[in-house]
Design a protein around this nucleic acid. Sequence first.
DNA 1: CCTCAGGTTCGGCTCTTATCGAACCTAAGA
DNA 2: TCTTAGGTTCGATAAGAGCCGAACCTGAGG
Lengths: 135, 135
Amino acid sequence: MVDAEGHPSRDEMELPVILNALSDPLRYKVIQEFLELPDGTERTCLSFGLGVSKSTLSHHFRVLRESGLVQQINRGNSRKAHLRREDLEERFPGLLELISRNPAPAAGTAKDDADAGAAAPSRSGSDRPGRATGP
Amino acid sequence: MVDAEGHPSRDEMELPVILNALSDPLRYKVIQEFLELPDGTERTCLSFGLGVSKSTLSHHFRVLRESGLVQQINRGNSRKAHLRREDLEERFPGLLELISRNPAPAAGTAKDDADAGAAAPSRSGSDRPGRATGP
DNA sequence: CCTCAGGTTCGGCTCTTATCGAACCTAAGA
DNA sequence: TCTTAGGTTCGATAAGAGCCGAACCTGAGG
């Protein structure tokens, strides 16, 4: 059963839900950063510097949390997230290795974005300009 | 470069795009069915019996095609699709095994959707009632 | 007590996606 | 040639996903 904070148990994780969580470039980047850190590393949402507002950040971490990719624990006035590495390895063996071997394309590497922009068709949901210009 | 029919080359495939294609339960089911068949099996879009209209089917196969998961070849009056197994194994080793080991949950069985609706939480992007009932 | 930093929730906005029907295209076959 | 089956394209529509700011909550630390 999903607990009060929205974490599914290991058996409740579903692959399409996890893949959906990973299909957003920001969330993909978060998981990738976790994979480069030692197991069990805890980080706050804001520490990733994703360049979005707090409410948007909260939304993305909710998707990650409810898919089962990360766990968030209340630590006093803050809230620390960590990758559920063991659960994921057990439930979906090979998934984390797949991600760690495939760095995010064009969203994280700023040096070749011009070339990537030409190669990537516009139809993918990768870049979302949104209302960055403001009202 | 993407060819005239929208197939990316092996090197152009991007994991988040593939994961996005797989995050839809219908498309996930198509790939899973391919994985249960012998390598190289060709099928028409309609042969999957997904219960959606032709135009919707065409849309889903376009997403699959443009992500790189399947290839569609003109065969006279028809168009046959097959899983790009070798390309996918080379580009993302472990991905296909991951899918074949995790059957789609509760979304594919149309006969007990009422029960599945009770079991699955409403928040996941798995089930889309849409306008299935029609106007 | 007050302030402050990290997160959540809410309302609202825009863009995308899944879906349909209708019209059209192509090649096989009667 | 006409029909037919498989697919595509074109609107249109409803739902969802990202995004924001504003208001709020919580606990640490002055």
